[in-house]
Amino acid sequence: MKHETFLKDVAIGIGVVLLLALLFQVITDPGIHDLIIKTCIFGLFALSLNLLVGYLGLVAFGHATGFATGAYVFGLLMQTGTWTIPAAMGVAVVAAAALAAVIGAFCIRAREIYFAFLTLAFQMILYSAIISFVSLTGGDQGLMGGYPKPPFLGIDLSRPFDYYLFVCGVTVICVILLRQVIQSPFGYALRMIRDNHERSYFLGIQVKLYQWIAFVIASALAAVSGVMMSLFVTGAFPNFAYWSMSAEPLFMILLGGMQTFLGPLLGAFILQLLNDLVTEHTRYYGLVLGLVILFFILGLRRGLLDVVWDKVSDRRRKAGTVRPASPVTGDAEARERS
């Protein structure tokens, strides 16, 4: 069963990449290409955060730690001029995961609002460190001067099409991996922890350990998006580690919907589109964005995909095709629609 869904996901993934490749050839506007690239980068960033927010019920407010670590480690390695892109990428992701393993060990001791702000505190330490160690990180200027992008496996990331395809491909691979995690028994355990902390504990689930593992996985995937962002700007900037960088994916999750697997990806797309459209007409982007957030919180009260999905499942329920929630996980299963 699981094997089948995996093959199905892979098939869909390949189809999506081919479609996006075709789109690149048909639409030649670089603005659209950038929109898709940024949607992939921030979509993966928000999706990885949603593993914690949506599936585990932990509101992490320091998710940019993984993003910035990935971008900076990758950028620094590439600037030496001796690293290949896949190797540097691997090291960057492992470094971010290792950092997350340490930070996570502290943070998961705290709950709710404390967890949120403790992760933020660690992120701001990283931010201060980046600003302070000018000789290594370039301080508030960021990693300037660019770096070479040596071709590997026939892929030359300095060519726009190669980079575009690379970002789409890596994102699709990571999304499939994330989906595997969420569909696994481990993923179901996370949802159970979210819905009933105590019961999971009594059933023998090592709650803290599971939370810690999820935290490390999410951070590693955030680092992948950070690496792709570093490739996009050929460098790294301290605002990658600034607190607003952690607020944005939370907003993408809210915008797209946290109950639906791909909701955050849609949220990332809408936010990028909104950014492009609004900044074209007014410089008061924050004002517009703030009003949009208010509308979503007080008006819709959930993300767009959640709204769509509720409509669809309502119709299906009327047709009698939705099976009842399983007695084991109860509400968790009913809430889970991925």
């Binding site: 509101v59 407010f61 607020a247 809210l254 703030g290 919180i297």
Partner: peptide, 23 residues
């Protein structure tokens, strides 16, 4: 609501007020 909604509501006001004082 949960913590996420509260944080985002305040985030919205940060953005709005920052632009309003500029206006």
């Amino acid at each position: 609501g949960d913590v996420l909604v509260q944080i985002l509501l305040c985030y919205a006001f940060i953005l709005i007020l920052d632009d309003l004082v500029i206006i």
